[in-house]
Design a protein around this nucleic acid. Structure first.
Lengths: 115, 115
DNA sequence: ATTGACACCTAGGTGTTCTAGGCGTATATG
DNA sequence: CATATACGCCTAGAACACCTAGGTGTCAAT
């Protein structure tokens, strides 16, 4: 049973996932599973990052040199892959945040155009 | 000559194009070429809608019943396809604007998280 | 005569996201 | 003890939007 085309209940992020991940990791080393929880929690359950989006994104960011990774144990004693922001990653985050600012300003300009 | 990967100068919109088009058309019947000019103009040259993005989007919106189309003459005497917003289109626009509001709020929540 | 703006269009490629699976461990619950 | 649930990682395939790069034709200006 396929959902109807008009059902757009999963209207999350679009190209902002990378930026959000970088921002969360910027708060301190953290593993993937926890990143998705933090994003969901801080956005008050608005963003729900699917694992099928999360892990490819993390690998993408790591490959681009924006994230570094290291296997460590969590507080509950399990092995997990902890990510941290590289210098390049911090620059990228700043660029993406500035860009987001400009995009949302431009969108606001258009949305508020009356007549 | 391929541009370097890190060159992200064309960091436009992402899934917002449909909404922006609907919003422009909501101001009154207008043809495709003029829509792209209006978007560029109102956004102060920030958004530059490529024709390869524009026309498929217009057909998409028309197929979904959000836009109606009619061939008419422009003020310069040329034939052009004028689009206007349908009732469904107006509802869709309202929904997308509300959604955009929630998305940008949620993004702002995360971006402003310190520590 | 040719260039550039106007005005429409499509095919093919790229990249991101979602769905839908799979693997393994630990902990709680029946 | 079984088994479900949370934790924590992963991938393949499909869908979809966007961009590049072409194409057509008209009209005005140089």
């Amino acid at each position: 049973m396929t959902r109807p085309v008009t059902d757009d209940r999963s209207e999350f992020l679009k190209g902002t996932l990378d930026m959000l991940i970088l921002k969360i990791v910027a708060l301190g080393p953290i593993h993937g599973y926890a990143i998705s929880q933090r994003i969901q929690q801080i956005s008050r359950d608005f963003f729900q990052v699917q694992q099928g989006s999360l892990y490819p994104a993390l690998h993408r960011l790591e490959n681009r040199g924006w994230l570094g990774a290291e296997w460590r144990a969590t507080d509950t004693g399990r092995e997990a892959k902890f990510y941290s922001l590289t210098k390049k990653g911090r620059k990228q985050l700043e660029a993406e945040m500035a860009n987001w600012e400009r995009i949302s300003d431009a969108v606001a300009l258009i949305l508020r155009t009356a007549e």
